[in-house]
Design a protein around this nucleic acid. Structure first.
Length: 562
RNA sequence: GCGCCUGUAGCUCAGGGGAUAGAGCGUUGGUCUCCGGAACCAAAGGCCGCAGGUUCGAAUCCUGCCAGGCGCACCA
């Protein structure tokens, strides 16, 4: 019970401080120290400057006019009326009228204890309130190996999903397989041509066919498995068969690559199943009933203009074939029908022109347009030793995601992909990623974890780990700094979920590692003083727990030795 | 032409209305009798693309311009 109270006070410190300020305002008004005025919600924020304490509020600045007092004077009055609280060790008025709060060492010690009790669930919350979220990402065409850009979305999507799970969302990872349309046909005919060619037949390679070497690899796989039997078939028959077998091969390959990256989807949704069912027709009928469909120029149109779009869009072409957009609306309707509260799609930035259109469709389906959220990801520029890696789609000359993961390893790939905000292009240097040096942030963070393991091994040998920890002995600046960093975690995690920014985690991991390393060089863990040793071992363990939590969410390993 | 993203230290980037704009790398100079030196500390380095506006306060929000990237299909 007591432990519970501590944990709650810790996580809600922000709320708690805000309440103290509110109480101060109320009692000042009651006492007549302030004139009656409407008190707005008290905002607490993290000062940028360390010297300004742990938390600050601008309430005196925002309310000065209403209170008819200069900001600093108002701030002073609030401080004078502030109730005493054990978690606060200092309050001061600063600058134009900020009120700065410093948290007490006792409060910080309770943070360490909270991590002791909660372990790896420290920082988890019910922020999402059980919101059902569908996260769709990667969604590559199954016509060839994935490129490095797909890898970035895989890492971002997967970690975002982890973050959502940790913050009380009910999340589903979904991959929309774009296995329908002309490119599938081109793919099949390309494989069929290479197949025949490899078996010595005279064939003309399709003009717009895929010329990448991987097409030959797929053909070779078919040959080694099924032999040359398909050669006797007509080109059409062969292509029809390959459209299936080659497709299955590629899809299996995609799943394997993603799995190697630690990314596993809950749902693989085939676009083809939409076309093969009556879903598109049903969706269009549904929209027609709602008045958003009309026929013109032989085609069926969606009234996108009704939702502020520049122009209406074709759903059924003149030739009777539905467009990609039509299938996509049916797909999103399917997701909505499955009962998700929120759909988040991660798309390449080159699809940004499509976002508003899709949101309009969601609206037309009778849902708020914000039920669909699109994260647009910028490109990955592959570098090697500072030089861009040349890639050509036309000749099929490229570095695949597979090769990248193979060469630099899953940990570095994931971590480096997650270091940047999704809306900035990312330079990925293969040489840097492989480097086991201080230039490589992945190793910096993992090293902190391994170093703690090493300390704990040493401590066990010295049999210093057995004592119960009294954290009130931790009062050195490096110790308190480390604890402050640990205490930040719940906010960081919630922020990553709220702003859909997994890069908060890599950043935090680096800062945490840095706080630990600084502590380590200043404070000896295993000493003659048994009580202090026990306390520091406890602290080091909590730091390690935090590193584990973050690395796990990032999908990066936390090695005991390296 | 219209739209989206980006422009912050030499380089790569954080910063989602707050105080003296931060981190990593690089540069320069330091720190090891002891738990992992893949570490730590310090210094130098900035008209936050430019110009206006909004307000107590702007790198952040709005408008215009400049530069780079990407889109503007009965393609997917």
């Amino acid at each position: 019970m007591a432990v519970n109270a501590i944990i709650i006070s810790m996580i809600d410190i922000r709320v708690k401080l805000a309440r103290l300020v509110e109480e101060a305002l109320k009692s000042a008004i009651a006492k007549g120290a302030l004139s009656q005025f409407e008190v707005p919600e008290v905002q607490m924020e993290r000062p940028r400057e360390k010297a300004h304490g742990d938390w600050a509020t601008n309430i005196a600045l925002t309310s000065a006019a209403r209170a008819k007092l200069p900001p600093r004077k108002l701030a002073e009055t609030i401080v004078e009326n502030l109730p005493v609280d054990a978690s606060v060790s200092g309050v001061e008025v600063a600058g134009p009228g900020f009120i700065n709060f410093r948290l007490s060492n006792a409060w910080l010690h309770e943070v360490v204890r909270a991590v002791d009790v909660e372990g790896e669930s420290f920082g988890r919350s019910n922020f999402g309130g059980g919101l059902k979220v569908n996260l769709e990402f990667v969604s590559a065409n199954p016509v060839g190996p994935m490129h490095v850009g797909h890898g970035r979305w895989a890492a971002v999507g997967d970690t975002l999903a982890n973050v959502f799970s940790a913050t009380g969302h009910d999340v589903t990872r979904e991959f929309y397989i774009n296995d329908y349309g002309s490119q599938m046909n081109i793919f099949a005919s390309s494989v069929a041509a290479r197949y025949a060619e490899l078996l010595g037949a005279e064939v003309e390679f399709p003009e717009n066919g895929y010329r990448g070497e991987y097409i030959r690899d797929i053909a070779r796989e078919i040959i080694s498995r099924d032999g040359d039997g398909y050669l006797s078939l007509s080109t059409e028959e062969r292509e029809a068969i390959f459209k299936e077998t080659a497709y299955r091969q590629v899809l299996t390959h995609i799943k394997k690559t993603l799995h190697t990256m630690g990314v596993d989807f809950d749902i693989w949704f085939s676009e083809r199943t939409i076309h093969e069912s009556t879903e598109i027709k049903k969706t269009i009928d549904f929209l027609r009933k709602r008045g958003y469909i009309y026929e013109a120029e032989g085609a069926t149109w969606f009234k996108a203009k009704a939702f502020g779009e520049e122009k209406d869009r074709v759903l059924i072409r003149e030739n009777g074939e539905p467009t990609y957009f039509a299938a996509d609306i049916a797909y999103h309707k399917d997701k909505l029908d499955r009962g998700y509260d929120l759909m988040i799609d991660i798309w390449g930035a080159d699809h940004h022109g499509y976002v508003a259109r899709m949101k309009a469709a969601v609206q037309a389906l009778g849902h708020p347009r914000d039920k669909l959220e699109v994260i647009l990801g910028q490109l990955v520029n592959l570098m090697r030793g500072g030089e861009p890696v040349r890639m050509s789609k036309r000749t099929g000359e490229m570095v695949t995601l597979d090769e990248l993961v193979d060469e630099v390893g899953r940990d570095a790939v994931r971590f480096l992909f997650l270091m940047r905000s999704t809306d900035t292009a990312l330079d990925f240097d293969i040489e840097l990623a492989k480097e086991k040096s201080n230039e490589n942030p992945v190793y910096y963070v993992q090293y902190a974890h391994a170093r703690i393991s090493s300390i704990l091994r040493y401590a066990a040998e010295e049999s210093a780990a057995a004592n119960k920890s009294d954290y009130s002995l931790l009062n050195e600046a490096p110790e308190l700094d480390l604890i402050r960093k640990i205490a930040e975690w719940p906010e960081v995690l919630e922020g990553a979920a709220r702003i859909r920014s997994p890069h908060f985690l890599t950043r935090y991991a680096h800062e945490l590692a840095s706080s630990f390393h600084y502590f380590y060089t200043r404070c000896r863990v295993v000493t003659e003083d048994a009580a202090l040793t026990a306390a520091r071992i406890g602290l080091v363990k909590t730091a390690q727990t935090l590193l584990r939590i973050v690395l796990k969410l990032l999908g990066v390993s936390a090695p005991e030795r390296m």
